[in-house]
Design a protein around this nucleic acid. Structure first.
Lengths: 165, 165
DNA sequence: GCTTGACCTTACCACGATGGGAAGCTGCAT
DNA sequence: ATGCAGCTTCCCATCGTGGTAAGGTCAAGC
């Protein structure tokens, strides 16, 4: 099997297969005399494994660890499970972060007329995080009987921080 | 105000301020004779605006658009609102994606003994997604949103697509 | 044979957003 | 005047993926 066939058999692009090889995620492929990479069905299996792990949101490094666990016939299932659950916690942390962002914006949008007037609490809030003012949006329409839950401008306090990488 | 002070006043690192300038997100700062950048409180305001937008998960390009809207005194609030809600939809799509991944893994973990025996359905599933389809996926292009989910071998598999990068 | 086109090879660039660091200049306080 | 903190520019790295260029290889058709 050449790399193109391996790619369509595994769902991993040829480009990525070479990349995985270059970073040592998979072993260097056997080559033909002409230098073409050759793949066995076992290789395809590993590629599909990696693809699946990536689809579940594991990073390449985590995929590497999973591969190692997979190949280690003596690993304890507890190890795999705790690894998996750790990843679940990370996913959930990210989910919470995104939800906080969405919540903040939805809240602001709720207070925005959305008509052709320029007055907009969304921009007002982004621009003026400082508490206190933001009273500007109170006029008319009054779909907001509720307190404006003043700290939707609670930026740093809120879990809506950008992730670094 | 020098860049360091602007950085601590805005919460954006000096490094990033220079970067924002280099990509045209903010105007080139005035310079002293010695070449030092000088910032006004208006500049700080813009920087804080950008920071807040980023905290809400807007990309730099989106932040750029928001800035433009902010500066355009005649924009319609409806424009801002639809922009914001579009972002909310994107956030929610991502959330759903992550939730599907977490769900898949949690489900697998539930079926894992988690003891010291090697037998583990988590790895078994990742390794053996159940053959059959998925190879094809026709000619490249395959946009991001395409299925190709993590199909958990158990019936309640959920769509867990990978995030772009 | 020879040409063509699909496939392979390596190598480099790009993204988005951020951090790190080097090498050199400036400003201020001792 | 010496030293140090802060500023400048420039380059590199990240992470995962795509693009592209320049060239080698293979199989099929003439």
């Amino acid at each position: 099997m050449n790399i193109g066939q391996a790619a369509s058999a595994s769902g991993v692009t040829a480009k990525m297969i070479r990349y995985y090889e270059s970073i040592g995620l998979i072993a260097a492929a056997v080559r033909t005399q002409a230098g073409y990479r050759v793949y066995s069905s076992e290789d395809i299996h590993a590629l599909r494994f990696i693809k699946r792990a990536r689809n579940m949101g594991f990073s390449m490094d985590e995929a590497r660890e999973l591969l190692a666990l997979w190949r280690d016939k003596t690993r304890a299932s507890a190890d795999v499970k705790s690894f998996a659950l750790k990843h679940v916690r990370e996913l959930e942390a990210k989910i919470a972060e995104l939800q906080a962002m969405a919540q903040t914006i939805k809240h602001l949008a709720n207070n925005c007329h959305g008509d052709d007037r320029p007055d907009c609490p969304i921009l007002a809030d982004i621009a003026d995080v400082t508490p206190q003012r933001k009273a500007a949006n109170g006029n008319g329409k009054s779909k907001r009987g509720t307190q404006d839950h003043a700290d939707c401008s609670c930026d740093d306090a809120a879990p809506a921080a950008p992730q670094k990488h």
